[in-house]
Amino acid sequence: MKNIKWSMLALAACGLLWQSATTVQAEEFPSKQINWYIHSSAGGGTDIFTRTVSAELREKLGVPIVVSSMSGGSGARMLNYMMEQPADGYTIVSLTNSNLATMARRNTEAQREDLVGIARGCYDPQALMIAPSVAKYKNIDEIIAAAKANPGKVKVGITHVASVDHVAAYLFSKAAGLQLEYVPFSGGGEIVVALLGGVIDAGVLNPSEVMGQVEAGNLTAAVLFVQERLKDFPDAPTAKELGYDVEMNTWRGIAVKKGTPEPIVKKIRDAVAEIMQGEKYQKYLADNSMGPESVMSGEQWDAFMDAEWPLWKEIMTELGYRK
């Protein structure tokens, strides 16, 4: 008796599945589930950004959107997979500068030219940060002086080599004619520990990640890699003010494969632009210490990436990472 009940239930479940699997292919986009891939693992900044946008996009477009993490080779796996999919707008990826680095290193067959931007959603400033109470060098002038006096003795913490942190510090050192010692860490938290413990002299961090320590006065920015000063660090100069034209910050955006029909791209761009101007998204930005200037339309962002892309290729060649 019990068995029969179970089999009935199972059959019903089977029917349900069948129905969901064979949704009719309609003319109008979107007519079926959209798959959205991210290169980082669950719970990270890119994941939270993606889930914030995708939840609203799901309502806007009226189709299921499934976000899956496809980590591997700093986005190599995700980009390779995207290249195999048809350019029909049903495959969306979240893109960050680390993916640009992966492309510049030729660890993936995809290149910048294979992608079309939908929108940029995050622009997270980076800074060279120090722990004023324990640091040997209390500001950027002292760091520069020390690095000039003892080349290779000033230790700068970075998150992974060939990452946006590394590149920012490298560009700065190149512009200022310094030789720094880079100490790779696996995450921002480890850099904070090393800074507070006096193991390293400075570290490249996103201030937004460590605001708790900043508010407590344990950490402060020595130099910013953005164009304008930040209100949280009134005393910290930008690299530009010091006379070095360095701008290198973490960004995240949404992209599709090149060749996706124009109307489809436009439709996704419009929907996403509306979401990003919305109250919910702006609150997300504020909660994560990012400004409203983070949001960029697809066209603007494409131009922005076009400007940054040659820089990445150049630096990866210089550092010996371009295959």
């Binding site: 089999s7 479940a13 599945l17 976000v67 899956s68």
Partner: peptide, 26 residues
């Protein structure tokens, strides 16, 4: 064969539903 049939029918469907529909694993 009754046990085989029931196990092969019920277990996969439950696992599939949990992962694909609840946890949204593709």
């Amino acid at each position: 064969f009754k046990v085989i049939f029931l196990n092969a029918l019920i277990a996969p469907i439950i696992v599939y539903l949990i992962f694909n529909k609840v946890l949204l694993v593709q």
